[in-house]
Design a protein around this nucleic acid. Structure first.
Lengths: 181, 181
DNA sequence: TTAAAGTTTCAATAATTACTGAAACTTTAG
DNA sequence: CTAAAGTTTCAGTAATTATTGAAACTTTAA
């Protein structure tokens, strides 16, 4: 399976970006390949298209499954496994976002909680405790907010996103409503 | 300069998380150290506290400056440079967020725009073009939205964040208002 | 000026992370 | 049951990324 120049371009770019998105080059390329192809692909097709080893594909699939980004399908009368993106583009983006929050925010939140409980002993640590509390509160807000977004339906999210520059107006509106009641 | 166990814990943790936040261990530790200390620190103090080389500190500072996370200060009668966080915790988080968007989203947006302009030649590429368009639209929405958030004042952001579960109510409200007018 | 204090650069090297490919394992058709 | 088809694992190695430390550079006080 060789790729058209345009598709190859796209796949290579996603490979380069891969490490910035939280995985590695190979895995970036794999997601791109699966997303850009309407039909599911076999592990061998992936290896051949990307010119990487079969073992590497296997490890990549495993990693992608841990991110819940791929699903396995089968074609009747064919025992090979076929891989496809697990949901719409939007679903995939959502999962990456969520997974990254888990890896980038949650462990810190846990540590900070513990440190806050410890309290400040020496007076020299007063400032440090304050800073830790501030960071904690910020991260907790981000966590709650992102959980909130996850709960919205795609349509609601679209609406929210499209609010654009009127976000601040909505906030003002909310304020006024709260004051009245 | 040696660190108290609690502060050392915090600094080491931020080091481990560093690579997940978009920089490396040393830089993660440096930010943590600067944030946790009320007084600005010299490059030598940083090197000594973190037990890393002077050169490494210099490169780290440079990187942190490219992220706009540190500022240089001077103490009258002392020619050494003192480093401190460039703004509040909130400011720093904001900058990291923004910088990451630039590195993680913008390059892809540029590529996709070009690819969309190229158009689809072979009928086999129809599907690919559709996917590319979808990804493009998603990324553009994210970009616009995040620019929007940047424009809000810290207070407005606080309000927005604290809306929490009432976000969907606000959206509904907006819908109703739009229909009336 | 100049030399002492301070900072940066970068080639060499260490540490980490990713990839290969062959062997081991699993599944299924016959 | 068995052998062919398919998949996974992982030790060895390649590629990448981070760090050191010594030399070069810059700044300033005297």
């Amino acid at each position: 399976m060789s790729l058209s120049p345009k598709i190859e371009n796209f796949v290579l770019h996603c490979g380069e970006m891969g490490s910035r998105w939280g995985f590695n080059r190979t895995i970036g390329q794999m997601v791109a390949l699966l997303v850009i192809h309407e039909q599911p692909l076999t592990a061998n097709e992936i290896a051949e298209s990307l010119k990487i080893s079969r073992g590497n594909v296997s490890m990549g699939i495993k990693e992608l499954q841990s991110w819940q980004l791929v699903k396995v399908t089968h074609i009747p009368g064919d025992r090979k496994e076929y891989y496809a993106p697990n949901g719409s583009i939007w679903d995939l983006a959502n999962r990456v976002f969520e997974e990254r929050r888990k890896r980038e925010v949650d462990p810190t939140l846990t540590l900070l909680r513990d440190q806050i409980l410890e309290g400040g002993n020496s007076p020299e640590e007063e400032y440090a405790n304050n800073q830790i509390q501030t960071i904690h509160d910020l991260l907790e807000t981000i966590t709650k907010w992102s959980a909130e977004l996850q709960r919205l339906s795609p349509e609601q999210l679209q609406t929210l996103m499209k609010l654009g520059s009127s976000v601040s107006k909505v906030i003002d509106l909310k304020d006024k409503l709260l004051k009245k009641s």
